[in-house]
Design a binder for these strands. Sequence first.
DNA 1: GATCCCTGGTAAAACATTTTACCAGACCAG
DNA 2: CTGGTCTGGTAAAATGTTTTACCAGGGATC
Lengths: 350, 350
Amino acid sequence: MARTNGKQSAVERKPVSIRDVADASGVSLTTVSLILNNGDQRISEPTRARVLTAIERLGYRPNRLAQGLQNRRSNILAILVPHLRHTFADPYFGELISGIYDRANRSGYKILLEAAGRSFLREKRYLDLFDRCFVDGMLFMGSTDEHRFLHRFRDRKRPFILVNNTWPGLDHVVADYRAAGRLAAEHLVGLGHRRIGMIHGAGDVETARLLIAGFAETLAQHGVELPASCMEDGFYTEEGGAAAAEKLITANPSLTAIFTGNDKMAAGAIQRLQALGRRVPSDVSVVGCDDITQAAFVTPSLTTIRTPLYELGRRSCQRLIERLRGKDEPCQEVLPVELTVRQSTAPAAS
Amino acid sequence: MARTNGKQSAVERKPVSIRDVADASGVSLTTVSLILNNGDQRISEPTRARVLTAIERLGYRPNRLAQGLQNRRSNILAILVPHLRHTFADPYFGELISGIYDRANRSGYKILLEAAGRSFLREKRYLDLFDRCFVDGMLFMGSTDEHRFLHRFRDRKRPFILVNNTWPGLDHVVADYRAAGRLAAEHLVGLGHRRIGMIHGAGDVETARLLIAGFAETLAQHGVELPASCMEDGFYTEEGGAAAAEKLITANPSLTAIFTGNDKMAAGAIQRLQALGRRVPSDVSVVGCDDITQAAFVTPSLTTIRTPLYELGRRSCQRLIERLRGKDEPCQEVLPVELTVRQSTAPAAS
DNA sequence: GATCCCTGGTAAAACATTTTACCAGACCAG
DNA sequence: CTGGTCTGGTAAAATGTTTTACCAGGGATC
């Protein structure tokens, strides 16, 4: 069905329909449709050839609104991103989106972007995307505890999946954040750190809690405490990370290491620590989380736990597509993480 | 037309159509449509009320595939992004996308994402998005000289706009890159720099050439040369910027300042310079371009020329929407840029 | 009393597909 | 000659809207 650059005919204005192709090749419209969709079946080779060249010559392209109406699907997937300031500029979401896009594209799905604020979710307006036949499936990113009502919409007609987050009973693909916490703790303890702080993300995000749990657990196993005074919320932003770092280091001047819930907070923390006269890593080691591209290009370059964001996006989309193809098993996939050591960590000053 | 959370009825399965609403309220389907679309016209108040409550009760949502088929438009805009590795993770594109999204959303348009590789463009497959009624309009970002063929498709039925790029005769909204080059040059010259290098972006991008021109021009006016040996291509990436910085500083050890075509290359350059034992800014000053969020969080924080990316996205989308509403004047808008001084520049070492 | 207009609505066409059910002719068996 | 099957198709229904043209009945006008 190779039909690239159809001629831009002189008339140019009215779109060419399947009807036109049928007329041009002297067959019924049904025949054209059959050739396009069934591929092999009944139609004789001469007829098929005639129709195909007509299609080529006229530059026919099936109207997907009509197709969608008939098939009751749109071949579009929606990505729901929390509506923050300039959400799409965040490399975290960007990596996930890239993975999703590439996978979707491979199967002929288009991607619709939706920034979903609180009200959007609370009023269930995302259901419109399904009910109005905008999309066949949805990928939720940045979901929080608020989203647990999603549970109620697990009917087979509106498939969705949580991207890099987890909720019991909901389809999801998520990085192993508990392991991430553990790896960070082991790395820091291994370097001899004993007075350690943490800058975590929002408390209503399950992965944030898992990360904290894994980190605290492992520290405890090594006899290192993580008191409340050594925990600060950094809101997942650079500014938040900076502010949190300042609070931590002021309240606990003897801290020699900080673990942050993502790389943006780490970047903010490093900058603020340096501004406050602490050298990184010689005075204070910093470990980030995610390993976004920029992590390698802050100074000092960031030691971080790599969550395979692109792959997480890819897999989520893969799973969603499987759902759309009728697979009916629940999907709860956990991808491994790994420690990436760079320049922002060093042995504890003795 | 306030109709939030329609009941999830027990039947649940077959979508409710305008037909169902008509039956439920004892009027014709035309009447329902009239109420929904015309708003005021002919229909009496009692009837309107009856229909509206039926809509509410049934949780009716118009099927947009059917609407689109009838109206021959989709209410979707496409963003075309060059298909690089993990394109969407690039904060440059992300900021533009955020601006576009917010503006589109305000007018009820949805956003479709498309990563357009070379072949996608060369084979004019993006035309399918129009011809198959996927989208009403398109925003091109990251366009290069290869895209000049776009010129041929300026018919009124397939509106598109170049986002932060320029081409004579094509609609576009672009930052003033020539001024950006000038501001960078004036800043560095003002600090006493005389031996200056530049890491530029791809040569087939018009804005890259404008930036170079503005920079070189202004240096020349101040009697500062910019020989070919002081120019390197950094391919708009961190790695490219790092490699280019190394070449520059090796070939011209006396360089005291470098201007880069975007912030990512600046980040790469700074890191490599430091790795090579040059201190930034005391040995070498670095000026970036764009002022992405991360620019403030590299160390030292980056002096850069702020191109208002979010605003550029917003305006582009605004202009495109005006086109869709029938406005027929060409749009060639240039937004001002400004110098943002941070820590990566200092007076030239004497 | 016929004509006209207004009010409040409806029937039907059109949009571009896919899919189901059917059909005409050729060929063959019995 | 009747009945059956296969081949290569076609007619028509269905999908859910919007919009155009029309219509019935009532009141006002001449």
